[in-house]
Design a protein around this nucleic acid. Structure first.
Length: 160
DNA sequence: GCCAACGTTGGC
DNA sequence: GCCAACGTTGGC
């Protein structure tokens, strides 16, 4: 069995929040609508079943990591790109030659308390995080040391 | 709501 | 294949 990798996935809570994920059937949802080529690469090829990700709330007064999710289905075509009615429609791809991909994630657990971006900026151990270096990437890798440092900050003794 | 940063597009 | 213009993200 290959080693679990760690990620961070952003969502605007007004659009789709961590609690919204919890409320879904099986607490599972497609992570659709990502239209950035670097993030696409992660979704399509690198995120594997069993990998875990921080769920990050962006575009709010105090943006923060609020919880943990798990990848339950690896990369497959994002059908919202095929639907002209959908806001994420992209005519460059097709069902035969999909351009955009998504994974399915399942709610695992909230952090004991949210860890804010503001707070992370003051923590040397996470100073190299993609979140701090390249703020706009909506799906991004997290190093294992960073993952653990954030769990510790949040007061989580043991990963569920 | 503003605007800086930065990813993407398209003319050349 | 460069790079200016444009559009979007996301912190503030």
């Amino acid at each position: 069995m290959s080693e679990r990798r760690y990620w961070l996935m952003k969502s605007e809570p007004s659009c789709f929040s961590f609690d919204d994920l919890k409320a879904r059937p099986d607490s599972t949802e497609h992570w659709d609508g990502v239209r950035n080529f670097q993030a696409r690469g992660y979704l399509k090829d690198e995120m594997k079943v069993g990998d875990r990700a921080f769920f990050y709330h962006s575009n709010i007064a105090d943006p923060a990591i609020v919880g943990i999710v798990e990848v339950v289905k690896a990369g497959y075509p994002d059908w919202t790109a095929f639907d002209p009615e959908n806001e994420h429609f992209d005519p460059r791809g097709s069902k035969e030659k999909p351009l955009w991909f998504m994974v399915d994630v399942r709610y695992v657990a909230p952090l004991p308390r949210p860890v804010t971006l503001r707070e992370l900026k003051g923590v040397p151990e996470v100073g190299d995080m993609v979140l701090l270096k390249r703020g706009r990437l909506s799906v991004q890798p997290v190093r294992e040391e960073e993952w653990r440092a954030i769990l510790r900050l949040a007061g989580m003794q043991e990963e569920p």
